[in-house]
Amino acid sequence: MNSRTLHHPSYSPNYFSLDDILATNEKLPCKFDRAVISMGFLDPSARSKDLEKGLKLELPLWMASALGSRRKIVSCSLPRAFNDRYKDILRADASLVDLHALSPYYYELGRHLLPLVGAEGATLGTHLISTLKKRLRGIMDNSLNCQEAETLSRKSHFDHLERRLFQTGRSIYQDHQLWLQRRTHLLHTVPTAPQQGKRKISEIS
């Protein structure tokens, strides 16, 4: 393991960030502000060819942000995970909430929602920061102290960004454990190498 494998962030300014693509695929409730012609297929329950004005539909974030902010075709509201009730719960004790069940990409989604929701954006921004700050203690303690068998259950209530942080802490912890057992200098064969067998000269040339 080298130092580069310990820290490999890949997030939203990066066009190819998989996390970002998945986060922008989360659905959020939208309301159409004007009728849209021949786009009825977006609403699976609709029978008409057109989308009517005032229709409420769940659209993925990437579509909502394209239609919402400048063209004013739809107006977005916050998904369930960001309503006041859940915000209050998170404000009371953020470290106990199962964020992954609430929204698997909580922070990323919140970050993308900021420009869409207008005046609520400022409070949402500070809310995201304070939530992460409160939960960091738990993430750090779990990743640097828990046993190998427990990792899955410990990180089950972390959202994706928190799992990344957990994994970062975990890798340095494992490196230290390996060093304590004097096993860092051992080299291992790749698991697939013995299965491949010998190569024949005819195959190489």
Partner: peptide, 21 residues
């Protein structure tokens, strides 16, 4: 690795909330 990574994420959140404001 853990501390700068978390500060990184906090900074990202703070920056995007600032720009939206």
């Amino acid at each position: 690795p853990l501390l700068p990574h978390s500060l990184d994420q906090l900074h990202r959140l703070a920056r995007s909330s600032n720009t939206s404001e």
